[in-house]
């Protein structure tokens, strides 16, 4: 958000608002990247668990709820796992969607701000 040396362009409150918005979106973008990474890992772990479940032939499994491993019949575990996987993939989808919107909004703001301030403003990451 630094302006390079050059002639002074008048910055209005509206411009400042746009810069603030861009900064907020940029922040959110980084948060989203982290959240997406975590969500992906979560998805993978659940996937692994589900694969292990297929391989195991025990009827009673230990499933962690809270801090303890509860003994549960196989079909209950399958049901729970399925539900968790569904939620996890929905969550990931939601985050990916938000990332797209954020990127689109950032591109639009870049267009407006570069249009006005030319090279007096730098909106790129180092």
């Amino acid at each position: 958000m630094q302006q390079g040396p050059g002639t002074e362009t008048l910055v209005t409150w509206e411009d400042q608002q746009l810069i603030n918005k861009f900064s907020r979106l940029n922040n959110r973008f980084h948060e989203l990247e982290d959240e997406i990474k975590i969500a992906k890992e979560n998805n993978e772990s659940l996937e692994d668990a589900s694969n292990e479940l297929i391989l195991s032939d025990e009827d009673i499994l230990r499933f962690q709820i809270g801090e303890v491993f509860a003994h549960m019949p196989r079909e209950d575990v399958e049901g729970r796992l399925e539900k968790m996987m569904e939620e996890a993939s929905k969550e990931l989808e939601k985050l990916e969607e938000e990332k797209e919107t954020v990127l689109a909004q950032m591109a639009e703001l870049k267009r407006i701000l570069y249009g006005k301030f030319k090279d007096s403003i730098n909106l790129e990451e180092d």
Binding site: R62, E67, V68, F69, A70, H71
Partner: peptide
């Protein structure tokens, strides 16, 4: 039913 749980 009773809950059977392994705990630390």
């Amino acid at each position: 039913e009773a809950l059977i749980a392994d705990f630390e």
